[in-house]
Design a protein around this nucleic acid. Structure first.
Length: 246
DNA sequence: CGCCAGGTGGGAT
DNA sequence: ATCCCACATGGC
C-alpha cells in the first residue's frame, strides 16, 4: 500500500528531475581506463551513473562521504581540491601525512579536527578492505557482512557507510539522510523521526527491484533524486513568517 | 549578521 | 534505547 505510493513518488521525482548521475567523481571524468570488474560491464547504461572504475575513484568517494558530513558540498570540493593539490590521492599517502598538515588541508570542509582523524581511520579500513569488497558478490548478503565492519570505523556512521557501499562499491543498501526524511516525511510516506535502520529497511523493502543490478541502480538514483528535490524545495519555498522583515 | 549544510561520537537520562 | 550537545567552514 505504502509501497505503491513510494514508488509513485520516486517515479514522479525521476520525471521531474531526470537522471542525476551521482556520485560526483572528479578524477574519473576523463578516464580511459577499462573496467576491472564484470560488475561494471553489465546492467549499467551508458551516459548514466557508473561505478568508479579505479581504486582512486573509489577512494575519492570514500573521502567525499566523510567530508560531506553535515557540510555543504561546495566546502567539500574545496577540501578535495586541497588534498589533490598536496598530492594526497591515495589512502597510503594520507596516512603518511602528518596530522597537522592534514588538518589544514581538510579545513575548508569544516569540523577539520575530527574529519582529519576520521580520514586516517577510514584510510586504514580502505587499505584492508577495498580489494575484498570489489571481489565480493553483488548481493545484500555482502552488505550484511561488510556494513558492521565499516560502522566500526571511527567517523563512519550509518549514512556514510551506506553512501560508501552504494556509490563506491555498487552494493545494495539504501542511504537515509536528512533530505530523505524531509521529502518523504513531508509527503506522509514515512515517519520522519523513525530510526535510521527502520527507515532503511522500509525503503529497501518498498523499492527493491527484480535483480541486484537493477536494485543498486534504482537506489543510487532514488537517493540522488531525494536530495535534488529537497534542494529545489528549499529554494522555491522561502518561509515567510509573521513579523518577519520583507 | 544569522542561518544552514548529503552526520557522528560521547555522555547523560 | 533515545536524547542532547560540541564540532567549524564557506555561501547566501
Amino acid at each position: 500500500v505504502t509501497e505503491r505510493a513510494l514508488r509513485r513518488a520516486l517515479q514522479t521525482l525521476a520525471e521531474r528531475h531526470g537522471p542525476q548521475g551521482w556520485w560526483p567523481v572528479h578524477c574519473e571524468r576523463k578516464s580511459f581506463r577499462t573496467p576491472c570488474d564484470a560488475r561494471h560491464r553489465r546492467g549499467y547504461h551508458p551516459g548514466e551513473f557508473d561505478l568508479p572504475r579505479t581504486r582512486r575513484g573509489r577512494w575519492e568517494i570514500v573521502t567525499g562521504a566523510v567530508l560531506t558530513q553535515n557540510t555543504a558540498w561546495s566546502n567539500v570540493e574545496l577540501a578535495l581540491a586541497a588534498l589533490r593539490g598536496a598530492r594526497l590521492f591515495s589512502p597510503e599517502a594520507l596516512l603518511a601525512c602528518e596530522l597537522g598538515v592534514l588538518r589544514q588541508l581538510v579545513r575548508p570542509a569544516g569540523y577539520f579536527n575530527q574529519k582529519s582523524r576520521y580520514l586516517q581511520a577510514v584510510a586504514q579500513w580502505f587499505i584492508e578492505t577495498d580489494r575484498a569488497l570489489l571481489a565480493a558478490p553483488l548481493a545484500e548478503q555482502t552488505v550484511i557482512a561488510a556494513r558492521p565492519v565499516l560502522l566500526a570505523v571511527r567517523g563512519v556512521g550509518p549514512e556514510t557507510a551506506d553512501s560508501i557501499l552504494l556509490y563506491a562499491y555498487g552494493l545494495p543498501t539504501f542511504v537515509i539522510d536528512a533530505y530523505t526524511r524531509r521529502v518523504l516525511g513531508g509527503l506522509g510516506l514515512v515517519e520522519p523521526n523513525a530510526s535510521y535502520e527502520r527507515l532503511r529497511q522500509q525503503l529497501q523493502t518498498a523499492l527493491r527491484e527484480a535483480t541486484p543490478e537493477e536494485t543498486v541502480r534504482a537506489w543510487q538514483e532514488d537517493h540522488a533524486l531525494l536530495v535534488q528535490e529537497a534542494k529545489q524545495l528549499r529554494r522555491a519555498a522561502p518561509p515567510c513568517r509573521i513579523g518577519e522583515r520583507v
